[in-house]
Design a protein around this nucleic acid. Structure first.
Lengths: 199, 199
DNA sequence: GTCTATAGCAAGATAGAC
DNA sequence: GTCTATCTTGCTATAGAC
């Protein structure tokens, strides 16, 4: 790639501004969904955050539900990318699980609003949204299922429970974590060690 | 107490109906808060569930926020009562932790709407509600802190992380649990065993 | 691509009759 | 203790000017 060219970018212009209006909208939506919850967040406020009025939003997104789906998709994409990257070149089943857990937790606790929305804002009364997102979430879950399957556990150890315990502990940490305490990677390491029995 | 008298009950009457109108309202609110989330649940629907109109609700509760606080208080009370009862007469630190975890999980997964609301519906943008509930939640947390402190863990084991891991795994289970799978007590036993390193 | 303007509706809460 | 009626406000979404 040439240094000054960007694939699929708008034609170069001296003072071009737009770049990605939609991305700004997604950022604002993720933030509002996280702070106030999906149904308490308003399209007006999201629009205001990016400097437009409510009506103008609908030029970029079809509905509030679509906006929620888009935030989830981006969030899952980011988490998956971080975990996949963290696994590259790491050997040994326990080390791999620890690397994945640390990456998962880092994105969750320090990765911004998208990941938090993915975990907390999937309203029960929007079945259409849940249906659209189910495959993505399942695929991510499979990633950890594979990692746990590789562990050299004592025969009879319930691998499903081990996975659910670790993931539950990691995901729930978002409700007690405060910046300034143990860093995400340390928490993840600790949880994996406790699971391994070598804390 | 005499068999036919009840402390602090309304004066006995042949066909008395009211008994506990407020309790019915709380039940309906807990259900609606759980199903739709606090902000998507409407006072109109809650009123309708108990056969009255929206305005009449305000004879029993001061506001929607008060209703949420009341549901939380009742939920925490139920969970605490179940765990305390489960601990009675149980000896041995691991057995006690397991009993508490099983009781906690049973209420959470099979105890109805109150407990679920306690875990899931504490909106970030209602600081007044959070303030009012903080002491209750902390007191409950202390109960498990005490149980974990009693465990004979290897020196250096991070007890705080052990507690957070277990509680996180238990609390998160509400997002994947489906009736008909492993019963709550079995899940709790499994998690405690994994923590203990004897799965 | 953003604006103005508004349709159409539902929300929380209150006042006063009964 | 419940109802009727309503105030006030906020919401999602659309239509059409610019």
């Amino acid at each position: 790639m040439g240094a000054d060219t960007v694939l699929s970018a708008p034609p170069a212009a001296a003072g071009r501004r737009p770049a990605n209006r939609r991305a700004q909208i997604l950022d604002a939506a993720a933030r509002r969904f996280r702070r106030h919850g999906y149904s308490a967040a308003s399209m007006r406020d999201i629009a205001g955050d990016v400097g437009m009025l409510a009506g103008s939003l609908y030029h970029h997104v079809a509905s509030k539900e679509d906006l929620l789906v888009a935030v989830h998709e981006e969030g899952i994409r980011r988490i998956s990318a971080a975990v996949t990257a963290a696994l590259a070149g790491v050997e040994g089943p326990w080390r791999r699980l620890e690397a994945a857990a640390a990456a998962h937790l880092s994105v969750l606790l320090e990765g911004g609003d998208y990941a938090v929305v993915v975990l907390r804002e999937l309203p029960r009364d929007l079945p259409a949204v849940r249906r659209r997102l189910a495959p993505l979430r399942d695929a991510y879950e499979d990633l950890f299922r594979g990692l746990v399957d590789e562990l050299p556990l004592a025969a009879g150890t319930p691998r499903r429970h081990a996975r659910l315990m670790l993931m539950g502990a990691l995901n729930w940490s978002q409700s007690w974590y405060r910046p300034g305490g143990d860093p995400p990677a340390a928490i993840a390491r600790s949880f994996v060690a406790l699971l391994r029995g070598t804390a």
